[in-house]
Design a binder for these strands. Structure first.
Lengths: 214, 214
DNA sequence: CGGGGACTTGATGGTTGTCAAGAAATGTGG
DNA sequence: CCACATTTCTTGACAACCATCAAGTCCCCG
């Protein structure tokens, strides 16, 4: 419990479902590497509204803020994380050369946030949700299904929509044959679903999906 | 032309209005520090749609991708930039200890992206635009006015709306007395405008703004 | 002075938010 | 293991908002 690398101190932690890893405005004393499970990064406005910034899953990196936390990190299920402490400055952030550039913690952390922006390129609810499901399935590493550890409300506040619209969008995607809702949390992509072929930042018919459509 | 720091090579460049610093999918061989001017970071979908990811201004840092560019960087006005080259890995990213943690390039780059997400927390067009104007004014460092170097269409594609809705939202904010449109590009915040007091991630009456309202 | 781009404004239909109610799933105690 | 309570999710009706289509105005620049 407590690995040592050349410059950083790493601590392994286990979180129970619902447990909060850190709160918004806490001092940011380290960045996080998620080994298993899934979290929710939320920013709370003073009027009570909530913005879900990202849903880290196993392999993701987050909490890269310096200074104070911009969001809180809340466990959606039981999680294993490794916390890498730093001391307020970033001078020792890069402890070792990385053989594969794409897997460096810095890039993964940046990508996690940047990916969230892409959803807003889709004007309709069904398009946004479809893009989100594809992206989340890709990050889960399962090609033909998704296990959603978050609630409909979480998804809604991540995509800038309401829970009702999200629910309707699920129904519409299912009617279109693009997804299959086994349970509310378990979604399957039928074999020939166009969704499977599409990848994150790529364009597709999602732009044309409407709630009203068959 | 070409400063040397301990580990990184830095090159100063000047861009004319409309000039492209790098294109989407180019190899990402360095990150950028913007000394003066303003740019537009755009992601292009293969169907022709465009998503404006951010509008860096003087003091901002961007282009932190490793691998390939997720967006293109286009000068909105004449710009002075410093390009810090890296070699595909991030092992030498932190060249020197930073006295003020908040000014470290990494955090500035992260904040630039994260800030864009907050706008989608506002459900209405006028709210989003208001939040954007406040945030952009703050980053420009001018308290009571904003100089918008980008077009209405740029703003629209940044906030996930159309140019028409943006135009109406400007008109509504002006009718409400929250802003004053000197010219289309020059916006002033009247002395007692509630907008001045609010800051980026803070909540306010923006949630309730409607296009239809007086 | 004329042309073209950017911006604004009007009318209409489609999509989403809101309000409300009902169904399904989950968890708890007997 | 089953019944019940609570939460989560789904669905309907209506009003409000935004996108679309279209026309008109302003401004910059040649």
């Amino acid at each position: 419990m407590g690995e040592k690398t050349l410059f950083n101190e790493a601590t392994r932690l286990t979180l129970r479902k619902g447990q909060i890893l850190y709160n918004q405005d806490d001092p940011a004393d380290g960045w996080i590497e998620l080994r298993s499970g899934a979290l929710r990064l939320c920013h709370y406005y003073s009027d009570g509204r909530r913005q879900v910034l990202a849903f880290p899953v196993a392999g993701d990196v987050f909490g890269l803020e310096a200074g104070f936390r911009l969001s809180s990190a809340e466990a959606l299920v039981e999680c294993t994380v490794v916390k890498h402490r730093h001391r307020g400055d970033w001078s020792r952030f890069s402890p070792r050369p990385t053989p594969a550039p794409a897997s460096h913690p810095l890039e993964r952390g940046l990508a996690l946030v940047q990916d969230s922006l892409q959803f807003f390129g889709y004007p309709t609810a069904a398009g946004r949700l479809g893009a989100f499901l594809i992206e989340f399935a890709r990050r889960q590493g399962q090609g033909d299904r998704v296990d959603l550890p978050m609630s409909r409300l979480d998804i809604a506040e991540h995509l800038g929509l309401t829970m009702h619209t999200i629910s309707r969008a699920f129904a519409q995607l299912a009617r279109s044959g693009l997804i299959e809702c086994v349970t509310p949390q378990r979604i399957r992509f039928p074999a020939r679903s166009e969704l499977v072929r599409a990848s994150g930042f790529e364009a597709m018919a999602l732009s044309d999906l409407r709630i009203g459509a068959a």
